[in-house]
Each structure stands twice: as C-alpha cells, then as structure tokens.
Design a binder for these strands. Structure first.
Length: 462
RNA sequence: GGCGCCGUAGCCAAGCGGUAAGGCAGGGGCCUGCAAAGCCCCCAUCACCGGUUCGAAUCCGGUCGGCGCCUCCA
C-alpha cells in the first residue's frame, strides 16, 4: 500500500485515487532561460513518481504546464529585442531536450499558458459570479477575505503581512496585502489579450487552475511542485479553483524539497546555479546526476556537489557491473547449487515497502545494494541457482524501471578496439604479459576498461 | 514577527522507543600473471544540556548552529 505525504494534512496518508486512473498535475517550467539542476530535481522526482505509480499498476494521466507568459519571459524578450515566442520556443525546446537527457518521460499533456487564455478568462468569470473578485486600477483581483478556506495549504495568516515579511511592491493597489491579481491590466510593451475586464494578460496563478480543470477536471489526485510554490502559488491556485467550482481541487499535494548548493538555495536570482548543460559539458554523466537527485528522499533538502555526482557515478557503475554479471552467469549456468532465494525475495519486498513508505528511496537503495552484495558473493563462490539468479535479475530490472536508470547501455565496439582486445587475448595466452598490458593501457586511454573474468574478458566504458 | 525543515562516521544518507542500513572515499586481506571487478574484515554512539522510560539517535523541554517560505522562484 502506497503512502504519500500530503502537504494539505501535513501527514503521510494512504494513497487512494479518486477514480481508477490517477490524475496528476505538475507545475512545469517558466521558459525564459535554461532550467537548472534544482529545477530538475523536481522534474526528475515527478518522473519517478509517475514511474512508480505505473509500476504499482496504476494508469496515470499526467499534465505539466509550460509557463510562456509572465514577467520574466516578457523581460527576456524585451532585453533581446525579440518576440516573446522566440524566447519561449527556444527554452521550451531546451527544456524537453534536457528532460530527455535525464531520461524523464513527457507528460501526456504539456499545455502552454498562452494557448489557454480563454479557459483562464472562464475561471475569472466564475470567480466574479461567485463574488470573489474586485477591480482596481483596471486589474482584476481575488479578494481572499471572501474565501473562507484561504490559507489551508500553507497555513499562512489571512490577515496580511506581518512584521518582518517583505512587502509586495504593488500592494497599494490591493484591498488586502495578500489579495492577488487574476487579470493584469495592459502595460506598454507587453503582450495582451482582450477580456471582459479590458486588455491585459493573466496573472501567474491562473494558468494552473485553468489548465488542470481543462485536462483533468475540477478534482484530481496529485498536484506536484517545489516547496517554494506552496505559498503563494498553490494557495492561490486553490483559492481560484475552489472559488470557481466550489470543490477542493486536489486530493494530494506533493511538494519536492529544495536542492542546495553549498548549503544555500540554488536560484537564478542568486546566480549560484548549474544547468544540466554545464554539467554535461564538464563530462558528468546524466544518469549519475539522476541517481544523485533520486537517492535523497524528496522531502529532504539535497546538498548538490560535484563530488556527489562522482560518488553516484560509482554507485551506478557498481549496479551496471552487477547486471552484466548476472547476464553472463545466466548464460553459463547449467544447474545451480545453493542460492539464497528467500533472502533475495525478502530484500526485494523490503525495497518495495520502502518506496511504498512515501518514496523512501535512500532506504530502498540500501536493500538493493544488500542484494547486490549477496548476489556477487554467491556468484564468486559459484553457489548460485536459477531461481536466485532470476530473482536478482527481476530486482535489478525493477530498479531500472522505477528509477529510470538503464543499466546496460548497448554499445557496439568499433573494429579497431575489438581487434585490440583480441590481440591482447592472444598475447596473454602466449604469456607475453608486458605487451598485453601495454595494449590494455592503450585501451584505457580510449576509455575502455577491461576485466578478465573466468568467463573471458569483459569490457566497459569508463 | 508568523509558518516550517534540519544537525547521524571524511562525504552522501536510512533509522519513527529496544541497543547505529546502505552508497562513496580510505586501510588490511582473498582472488588475479599483474590489474580491474568482486568478496571478507576494519572505520560513528547519533550538535549540546536536562527530563520521561527498564531502555532514546528516536518522545518532551531548553541551548547552540544551519536552512527554507512569508517577493519572482522547482
């Protein structure tokens, strides 16, 4: 039974979907720049959750929006003197490339805000009808004092801002400090659409309410995002959706903790961020990065370091090598002796139980590595049987599927390297070890590492 | 001022009342022609103080330290 932490209740709850299919909405990127590795912690976690749910035999319908109209995208376009869509297209494409590189699957729907203005206006009309709005200086605002549930997600005080809090710059336009804009009046040099309240553009929170309603309905199961979105974004989203429909829109609010760099939040405004592209350029392996991002449970802050990627790389290599060994062992095993079926089955079960417990990936990996050690040990001693081997293979394959980290990268050796390996084998047979070692060193320089096993030579890329 | 998180070995990290998982790195050994991979062994009493308890890293109170949200932000 899968249990998931719900920000709404601040408790771990049993996961029970509203209907058969699980409906999930995820806050996506604002496409004004390359996403950084902190952003990707969230998106990789969402991908992990989706894979996990599917593995638990749920069908999942997922939606992730693309924010392609807001202050930042507009500013960027103006800075570069190009159209808004030039900017948003560029970074949207980059975003999907990066996702793919990290082996994240796309959602079924990736709706763009600019293509759902009509739906947003509908929400505003509903809110207006329900008496939750007012107009100030040409903009339409949501009046939080008219909405009794305001603050239920973030537990913030409805009564405005308290001492010490930073103050919203255009507060003066609003009746109450925490009221927020639904429809912004047109400003010079900004894109605009027509609406019943005049020309302007939608407020940021509106798109998620509108698009989730369109693609998933008024109520759905899971809504994901980074913890920073709890307030005000998701609080306001609830206000809009619930204010419009009268129904609580989301059953489980799923928030991913921050990724830190040197103990500090990574953010574009601080400039202390890595993009995926930076890391790849420096030769870091995307699957090692993915492993690192997933190895710390999503509700814990993750302190991101380059050393951490290296350590993860080593872990992934260990798993890769283990899988390769299982495949070989299966080929050569005639009839096995010994084995440790029960123990492996038990670890496999615990692996699942850990993930069931609010996705405790760190714990689950502990059990996986226990199985790796046991398996290696059995194979070392030649005391493995088919059932154990099959079980280990299944276990590894579950890891690959759920974590989205393939452990065999099918590669074909080019002829030259193949020749060198064969040549070295000849030399070794003739016990010309010095020459053989020289060939091995040459291969190493080409990034090919050799391992002489009882089943013959095995190669891998470093 | 309000809300919240965290402090476990060199690094990452599990642990939710019964006497410290796992990964990386390091040391020693086995295996190997030598390596590599793998295996075995070694490497912490859980920030600090006090309390509850037969028993606490785990519960309560306090101290110190770090971080986040309350503004755009994954």
């Amino acid at each position: 039974m899968f249990k998931i932490f719900n920000t709404l209740s601040r408790e771990v709850e049993e996961f029970k979907p509203l209907e058969e299919k699980v409906k999930m909405y995820s806050c996506g990127p604002t496409v004004y720049d390359y996403a950084h590795i902190g952003n990707f912690r969230t998106f990789v976690t969402v991908d992990f959750l989706r894979r996990f749910l599917r593995w638990k035999n749920y069908q999942v319908i997922s939606v992730m929006n693309i924010t392609d109209i807001d202050d930042k995208t507009i500013r960027r376009a103006n800075e570069e003197g190009v159209s808004l869509s030039t900017i948003t297209k560029r970074y949207e494409d980059a975003f999907f490339e990066d996702l793919k590189c990290l082996n994240c699957e796309k959602a079924q729907f990736h709706p763009r805000a600019t293509e759902h203005i009509k739906e947003m206006i509908e929400i505003c009309k509903d809110l207006e009808k329900n008496g939750l709005t007012y107009i100030s200086q040409g903009s339409l605002y949501f009046r939080i004092n008219s909405f009794k549930n305001y603050g239920k997600l973030s537990k913030v005080d409805k009564e405005g801002i308290l001492e010490g809090a930073r103050v919203d710059s255009d507060e003066y336009e609003k009746e109450s400090a925490r009221d927020f804009v639904l429809w912004k009046a047109k400003k010079e040099g900004e894109p605009f659409w027509t609406s019943p309240w005049g020309e302007g553009r939608p407020g940021w929170h509106l798109e998620c309410s509108a698009m989730s309603r369109k693609y998933l309905g008024e109520t759905f199961d899971i809504h994901t995002g980074g913890v920073d979105l709890i307030f005000p974004h998701h609080e306001n989203e609830i206000a809009q959706s619930e204010g419009a429909s009268g129904k609580s829109p989301v059953k489980y609010w799923f928030h991913i903790e921050f990724l830190l760099v040197n103990g500090e939040k990574m953010s574009k405004s601080k400039g202390n961020f890595y993009t995926l592209r930076d890391l790849l350029k420096d030769g870091y392996d995307p699957m090692a990065i993915r492993f690192l991002l997933l190895s710390v449970p999503y509700r814990k802050k993750l302190n991101f370091t380059l050393e951490g990627i290296d350590a993860s790389k080593s872990s992934v290599k260990r798993l890769e090598s283990f899988k390769a060994r299982i495949v070989e062992e299966k080929k050569k095993l005639k009839e096995g002796v010994g084995g440790a079926e029960d123990e492996i089955a038990s670890l496999k079960r615990k692996f699942e139980e850990s993930l069931d417990d609010d996705l405790n990936t760190a714990e689950s990996l502990g059990f996986l590595f226990d199985a790796v050690r046991i398996g290696n040990s059995l194979m070392d001693r030649g005391e493995i049987d088919y059932p154990s081997l099959n079980l280990l293979e299944e276990f590894v394959s579950e890891f690959e599927n759920i974590f989205g980290i393939p452990l065999s990268r099918e590669e074909i050796l080019d002829e030259e390297i193949d020749k060198m390996i064969k040549e070295r084998e000849e030399l070794r047979k003739r016990k010309e070890f010095a020459k053989a070692d020289k060939v091995r060193d040459e291969l190493k320089e080409k990034g090919i590492v050799l391992e002489d096993t009882v089943n013959g030579v095995r190669w891998r890329r470093e």
